[in-house]
């Protein structure tokens, strides 16, 4: 089933530059989805993170996430919410060390979605894994099941939420890949913040679109996924680990 409407085609044409008959260059900027249209299985949004470019002292992505999502800590590291964190990884055999940003890996087969009793843990058509906090009962089974430790539990009352990220006590939450920004045609906050530092270690794109920079990079260069052996099929790929 194709979900492309005439309006989508017209919008698409507006964002593309016709170089020659039959040859168009698609503008790099993602398109905002038309109002009223649903996320489509024709997309598979993901990230490519080059740890070689990631500085261990830099927390630009983490800070941007906290601001974008309205995550306020209480100086309680064991219970404070983190959507993205920097993991320092060192090979004890060789001494090689990397700093690796880890967030929800937006798995193709997410264990959190499998175990959720109510269906609050869910995968959107475009592969973004979300918690529907309207029906989350706070059982935390998804946190038991996630191999990436990507989810946090809101351990206390929340205030000063951002419009785009409603969050409250007693529910589980995690990185949304900034679904609200993607829907509006923008990149996730961490990606933008990383680019603003000049390092541009995180590349965002559509893995289902063979012409996207992300697809072309992962087709040409070696990349790995965290715990690929588990078969969860993360949409986040890494280089240099």
């Amino acid at each position: 089933m194709t979900e492309t409407t005439r309006r989508d085609l017209l919008k698409g044409a507006a964002g593309a530059v016709v170089l020659a008959p039959g040859l168009t260059l698609i503008a790099a900027k993602a398109q905002a989805r038309a109002p009223g249209s649903a996320a489509s299985a024709a997309n598979r949004f993901g990230l490519l993170i080059d740890t070689g470019k990631c500085d261990s002292g830099c927390t630009a992505c983490v800070d941007a996430c906290k601001t974008e999502m309205g995550l306020t800590g209480h100086d309680r590291p064991a219970t404070d919410v983190q959507y993205i964190r920097k993991v320092n990884v060192k090979d004890p055999a060789t001494g090689a060390a990397h700093s690796v940003p880890v967030m929800c890996q937006h798995c193709a087969k997410p264990p959190c979605v499998d175990v959720c009793p109510t269906g609050a843990s869910m995968k959107r058509a475009d592969g973004i894994v979300l918690v529907d906090r309207h029906i989350c009962i706070g059982c935390r089974y998804c946190m038991m099941a996630c191999p990436y430790k990507a989810r946090s539990f809101a351990h206390e009352d929340q205030t000063n939420q951002r419009e785009a990220n409603p969050r409250g006590k007693g529910c589980v939450e995690a990185c949304t890949l900034c679904a609200h920004r993607i829907d509006a045609g923008a990149k996730p906050a961490c990606v933008e913040a990383c680019a603003a530092t000049g390092k541009a270690a995180i590349l965002f794109g559509d893995l289902a679109d063979p012409n996207s920079e992300l697809s072309r990079r992962v087709a040409a260069e070696a990349s790995t996924r965290i715990r690929a052996d588990l078969g969860t099929g993360p949409a986040v790929r890494y280089q240099g680990i």
Partner: peptide, 21 residues
């Protein structure tokens, strides 16, 4: 539960892939 007030949700929404459900 984080939201014990939503017990009714657990009784009305079932994800049959979940052993919890």
């Amino acid at each position: 539960l984080g939201r014990p007030d939503r017990l009714i949700v657990a009784m009305t929404h079932f994800n049959f892939k979940s052993i919890f459900a």
